[in-house]
Amino acid sequence: MTKGIVPERRPRGAAFVIAAGLAGLAALLLWDAAGLKQDGGYAGVGPADVPRMIAYVLLILSVGTVVAGIKGDLPRPPRQAPAPVLWILGGLGAQLALLHVLGFALTGAILFGCTARGFGQKPLWRGLLIGLVLALVIYGLFDRLLRLNLPGGPLEQLIFGG
């Protein structure tokens, strides 16, 4: 990266991050395999052998990615807007954290509203409201009618009963 800049064929920093990730994954596999009892039984191939093999290939791919990165052989992503991504992740995170407290319908509404907001829909409350109606319909249909077990919260109790 310190050498002269060749347009379009510039070394790519992202490639090194990806390569490091792959090497890290390989290291994780090898570390885990080391802790396994090597018990191939009559097969001769034990539970640790296949993860090891996969780890070695990942290491090779990691080196390949570095080489590709130096050659600049990686597509350049278009400019990304971080805000929408954060809105959506926030919605998913809120659902994860609050699902068992608020129930399916309310967290579903939050997810729907945040996602819509991430896609530029304002104001937020409209998305939340539409999401709530949709989630309640889904809850009624799947939990009550089809008995797919969805976590209920205070709102579900109120509307659909115990």
Partner: peptide
Amino acid sequence: RPWLYGGILLFATLGTIGVNPSPIEL
């Protein structure tokens, strides 16, 4: 699009929640 993707994510998580509503799965 805002409504469409909101719906997609709602349904996408519905499958996981319906099968196994554990925080780890989510």
